[in-house]
Simulated assay, not measured.
Amino acid sequence: MPEVLEHRLLGGRLLLQLLPAAAYSARDPAQWQTLGVTLERQRGVHAIDSDRREDFDTWPGTLALTPKGVEVFSESARGGEYLLARWQEQTPLIPGERRLQRSGHAEALALGREARRLLLAPVIDELALEHCALAFVGLSQSRHIPTAPLPRLGQVLEQIADQYAQPLSLAQLALTYGHNELRLLRDFRRAVGLTPHAWITEVRLQAARRLLERTDLPLAAIAHDSGFAHQSHLGSALRKSLGLTPRQYRLRFHSCLPVPVRYPSRGQ
Rank of each mutant, 00 (worst) to 15 (best):
R113M: 03
A115Y: 04
E81T: 15
S265A: 15
A30G: 05
A174S: 15
D55M: 05
A148H: 13
G44Q: 10
G235Q: 13
I124F: 04
H131E: 15
R183E: 12
V203D: 00
A198Q: 02
G235H: 09
F56S: 07
M1R: 10
L168P: 12
V4C: 03
A110R: 01
V72F: 09
R41V: 00
L111N: 04
G154W: 11
D51G: 09
L244C: 12
E54C: 12
Q31C: 12
L217E: 01
H197Q: 15
Q101E: 15
S226L: 02
D51L: 11
E114W: 06
L16A: 08
A26Y: 03
R102P: 11
G227V: 02
R8C: 09
L212E: 00
L219H: 11
L211H: 06
A207T: 10
Q155L: 15
D51R: 08
Q31M: 07
L205S: 01
L129V: 02
R266I: 06
A133E: 02
T195F: 00
A121I: 13
D55V: 14
P167R: 11
E75A: 14
E107V: 01
R152T: 15
T38L: 12
F136K: 08
H230P: 00
L18W: 07
P122S: 04
Q17G: 10
A223W: 12
R152M: 15
Y249E: 07
F228Q: 04
R27G: 10
A171K: 13
R78M: 07
L118Q: 13
A110C: 01
R152Q: 14
R86I: 10
L157M: 03
R102K: 15
L9K: 06
G69K: 07
V261G: 02
L127C: 05
S74M: 08
A115D: 01
H254S: 11
T34C: 08
S265N: 07
P67F: 08
V4H: 02
T62V: 02
L120I: 10
Q248S: 09
Y24C: 01
P122R: 09
A223F: 06
E81D: 13
G193M: 00
A26S: 05
V37N: 07
Y249G: 08
L14M: 09
T215P: 01
L100K: 02
T91S: 12
V259T: 14
R27Q: 09
S241A: 15
Q166Y: 09
Q155A: 15
Q141P: 01
V192A: 00
L18S: 04
S140A: 15
E40P: 02
A223V: 11
R102E: 13
G154H: 08
Q166G: 01
W32C: 02
A133D: 00
A22N: 02
F56Q: 05
Q248P: 04
E97W: 07
P20A: 03
S50C: 12
L139Y: 06
P20T: 04
V156G: 00
E3P: 03
A133R: 05
A115L: 14
I124W: 03
H7R: 13
I48K: 04
H105A: 05
R239I: 12
E181V: 11
G61K: 00
L182V: 14
Q88T: 15
